[in-house]
């Protein structure tokens, strides 16, 4: 249980570290990035053949290198999510009807791997990969506050963006608090304990955490009021779209159109 907390804080630290370095994508306006990356994901969802999907994945990897994200880290990060996807796709080569390319087993109990099934599995895994890499790249190269700011510009209601920015701030605190509570408990526990007792302890920890966060919430609210909070969080960063951002946006749109035409004009072989 402890490791999941450590993993979470490590991930956030990584996120912030890369978003502060001076790579290519870090210098692009967040609004343009959100727009173009959403377009990439949309294209990946409607793509059926392998070639456009591979193009999309390759492109995001090139972007990640240009943005000074270590290749190994980026690959591991995106591939980690794929393990689960690959598990889902695993039965596909066996259950899809089609022309068999390999057969296992003997008399009557034959399991055959079909080429149609293999294609389907490959297509599924590649599509999900092409969909998740842009999102991961977006968050790795964009600071949280500027992402929130650009969401605001996309007319996401203020209540959401305000709540999101305050929530994000307090997540670290509560992760720390929960981590300490669990660490303290585990160091007091000598032997493996019954399922019921573990559940009971978890529930009491959660209710304690709930009470503490309620009280902290009240204090934070009063403290913010005392400092002149009036229901709105103002940002001093001004975002401006310059020539570079425009070029990136146009490039993204052109890329998307090209991939769609690859897909629907059947230029690609597979």
């Amino acid at each position: 249980m402890l490791s999941s907390f450590l993993k979470a804080s490590k991930e956030i630290v990584y996120n912030e570290r890369f978003s502060l370095s001076n790579g290519f994508l870090q210098s692009i306006d967040p609004r343009v990035k959100v727009f173009s990356f959403t377009a990439f994901i949309l294209v990946a969802i409607v793509s059926k053949s392998i070639l456009p999907l591979i193009t999309l994945v390759t492109m995001t990897f090139i972007f990640s290198i240009a943005s000074k994200i270590p290749l190994r880290f980026f690959t591991l990060r995106t591939a980690f999510a794929l393990i689960f996807v690959a598990l889902i796709a695993l039965p596909l080569p066996f259950v899809t009807p089609g022309s068999p390319i390999a057969t296992i087993g003997n008399n009557g109990y034959l399991i055959s791997i079909t080429s149609e099934g293999l294609f389907k599995a490959l297509q599924f895994v590649l599509r999900v990969w092409a969909c998740i890499t842009p999102l991961i790249l977006l968050t790795l190269t964009t600071r949280f506050s500027s992402l929130i700011h650009s969401l605001e510009r996309f007319r996401v209601p203020r209540v959401f963006t305000n709540m999101m920015s305050v929530t994000y701030r307090f997540i670290f605190l509560f992760i720390d608090e929960a981590y300490r509570m669990i660490l303290a408990r585990e160091s007091r526990t000598v032997r493996g304990e019954s399922c019921l007792r573990a559940t009971k302890a978890l529930a009491s920890m959660m209710s304690t955490l709930f009470i503490r966060s309620y009280e902290r919430g009240e204090r934070v609210y009063l403290a913010m009021m005392a400092r002149g909070y009036e229901g709105n969080i103002r940002s001093i960063t001004r975002m401006s779209i310059n020539g570079r951002d425009m070029i990136f946006g146009f490039f993204a749109i052109a890329m998307c159109m090209m991939i769609i035409s690859l897909e629907y004009l059947h230029i690609g072989v597979v």
């Binding site: 999941s4 305050v166 994000y168 929960a178 573990a198 920890m205 919430g217 609210y221 009021m225 909070y229």
Partner: peptide
Amino acid sequence: LSDKQVPFMATLTAMFFAAQMMNYP
């Protein structure tokens, strides 16, 4: 709630976010 109570809701949300990381068998 008034608009101003947003920070209060936000801390509770953050707590539930952290609580989602606690696993039960």
